[in-house]
Design a protein around this nucleic acid. Structure first.
Lengths: 173, 173
DNA sequence: GTCTATAGAGGGATAGAC
DNA sequence: GTCTATCCCTCTATAGAC
């Protein structure tokens, strides 16, 4: 749907995701989103007829970004699982912002919950295909989830990653 | 502070945490909290003079519950890290509800963020003291965080736990 | 395509009765 | 200690000008 959106629509979605990321759902009001995107509330509501549509737009974009990310993972070849963990703690990328936004929305919105479930399945399948070991795939995914979760609370995950990599070595990875 | 609160105060805190858990911050209005606790909004505001005080009350109770949980972990002896992972995916306990509530609040509230950081430190220190291995302690904590995170999106973590336990065996735990 | 103005609903908080 | 009534503010959404 949002495959070829106008520039203003993109700016609005960016503003929405950023505000969710920084201040949670309470901070992501239509007023605030419009102001950050540099348009008026009326302008916003021309592009997205309601807040529900804005949410849909954000979730649809997440889907696209995840599909791109899965391709990138596959391009990492033998390092696929390392690439996954390294990017789990990444901050400031479009995917990261979009994912945090969905995480905020998921607390109050079932569509967002479903989108996150789908996302997780895509990653698990990619890890599992690569490793051929569901135990390892699930464990690595959980570690990635943990790093993502913590990064959300302002905890640096740099040394966390170092700890985890040493454990992966012990597992022969 | 909240060491000997009135019964009504406890009922209000329970209602607040439950509503945060079920519907996020948007659903946890003073009206809704009061209604679920079986009092009027005025009644609520007698006990907690503002929404900020209600939040403080919830976070203070979390602190108590975490301290209790750490004692329980220590009581598990050699199974300490297993006990930690098994209870990470637990649903419906007072601690679990309180923790999810704090997770909701943390998106918009810095005190809640700080409370979660403190909580994580307490658990990490307990795991690290027991295992004597920071790499393992950090990895197990991240896995626990991951399970907690997923459980938040309605994903059953029963088989996740089974996968992880097999990996722990490979690590000699 | 973007703006202002405004209606209508709901949330937080205060005042005062019981 | 708990209630009702009410005020004010903010939020979503609509109407209509440019």
């Amino acid at each position: 749907m949002a495959r070829n959106p106008s520039e203003t629509k993109e700016k609005l979605l960016n503003a929405f995701d950023e505000l969710l990321d920084e201040h949670g759902t309470a901070g992501a009001t239509l007023d605030a989103v419009a102001a950050r995107a540099g348009v008026s509330k009326g302008g916003l509501l021309y592009h997205f007829g309601s807040k529900a549509e804005l949410i849909r737009g954000s979730l649809e974009r997440l889907e696209l970004l995840v599909a791109e990310d899965v391709e990138e993972m596959k391009a990492a070849g033998e390092r696929l699982h390392y690439h996954y963990l390294e990017t789990s703690a990444e901050v400031g990328t479009a995917l990261d912002r979009s994912l945090i936004a969905a995480g905020c929305l998921a607390l109050e919105n079932d569509d967002a919950k479903a989108a996150l479930r789908t996302t997780r399945e895509a990653w698990f399948n990619t890890l599992n295909d690569h490793l051929g070991d569901a135990d390892l795939a699930m464990t690595i995914q959980l570690i990635g989830d943990g790093m993502y979760f913590n990064q959300n609370f302002g905890l640096s995950q740099d040394d966390a990653l170092a700890h985890v990599k040493r454990i992966l070595k012990r597992l022969g990875l």
